[in-house]
């Protein structure tokens, strides 16, 4: 126990823990998605994948995006959006869209990893676009969370909040919370710019920078707030609300006890 706690306080312990966590998630992810990722990176998809993907696409997506992904009035063209966009939108459950609204919301995905990959293969065949990032791109073992934090504050915090708690956009749209989002989806969101999010290509934020950002997000997600409960990381609003409700509430309870007569 003592030895463990001593090692836990070692300066590298946090990083080691982090790496373990990352390897574990990465490993699980790799198991879940099989060896397909590697294939996606090196060689494009097989003709069979594209064929299967097309069937799924026609059945589930063509109503809005058109029979050949050319787009309609209700859905944008998918030519050139790339496999990464499909993997992000379908993998996070945003697509197929539940209903028209200011913005597609995250929900449990409707397709499994294999089906998603097949649809991605089909959409990728429509025109060149960003591919699903492979294991190498997502390897954050030598990433620098400090630099990631700086990049995050400049490029992401204005919408997603400095602690990744999310924020409001115009007319009912919003930037979602980032805790719990898988690394690959964060990466894909940056390279594809889903919905109203701008695109951050490799020139704007280098692949290394993207890994740094992911490492930063994983660090703040895995580290609890040293000060105790974080009250949603929403800043002074939740703090003010807390002091007026809980703080003053407890104090008032004490004042009532204090001035009441003893039985």
């Amino acid at each position: 126990m003592k030895a463990l706690s001593q090692r836990r306080r070692h300066p590298l312990a946090a990083i080691a823990l982090l790496l373990m966590g990352l390897l574990l998630t990465g490993g699980l992810y790799a198991v879940a998605s099989g060896a397909n990722e590697a294939k996606a990176q090196s060689s494009p998809y097989t003709a069979e994948d594209v064929e299967e993907g097309k069937k799924l696409f026609v059945a589930n997506c063509a109503t809005c995006h058109g029979m050949s992904g050319q787009g309609t009035e209700t859905g944008p063209s998918l030519v050139g959006v790339g496999a990464a966009a499909v993997h992000f939108q379908v993998g996070t459950g945003r697509m197929p869209l539940q209903m028209q609204g200011p913005q597609a919301k995250e929900k449990p995905p409707q397709f499994n990893e294999e089906e998603t990959r097949q649809m991605a293969a089909y959409v990728a065949s429509l025109g060149p676009g960003p591919a699903i990032p492979g294991e190498k791109a997502l390897d954050t073992s030598d990433a620098d969370p400090g630099n990631g934090g700086q990049l995050f504050r400049v490029n992401c915090a204005m919408c997603h909040n400095a602690a990744g708690a999310g924020g409001a956009l115009t007319r009912g749209k919003f930037a979602p919370q980032l805790a719990g989002v898988e690394d690959v989806h964060v990466y894909e969101a940056m390279i594809t710019g889903p919905q109203n999010m701008p695109v951050f290509n490799d020139a704007t934020i280098s692949p290394q920078g993207k890994q740094d950002i992911i490492a930063f997000l994983n660090t703040i997600e895995s580290t609890p707030s040293p000060g105790g409960a974080d009250l949603g990381s929403l800043g002074p609003v939740s703090e003010g609300l807390f002091v007026w409700t809980a703080g003053l509430g407890v104090i008032i309870a004490f004042t009532i006890w204090l001035t009441s007569r003893s039985s």
């Binding site: 915090a157 204005m158 909040n161 602690a163 924020g167 800043g235 002074p236 609003v237 703090e239 003010g240």
Partner: peptide
């Protein structure tokens, strides 16, 4: 930079 939810104390 700026963070979403930039507010002063209550």
């Amino acid at each position: 930079p700026i963070s979403a939810g930039t507010q002063p104390d209550w």
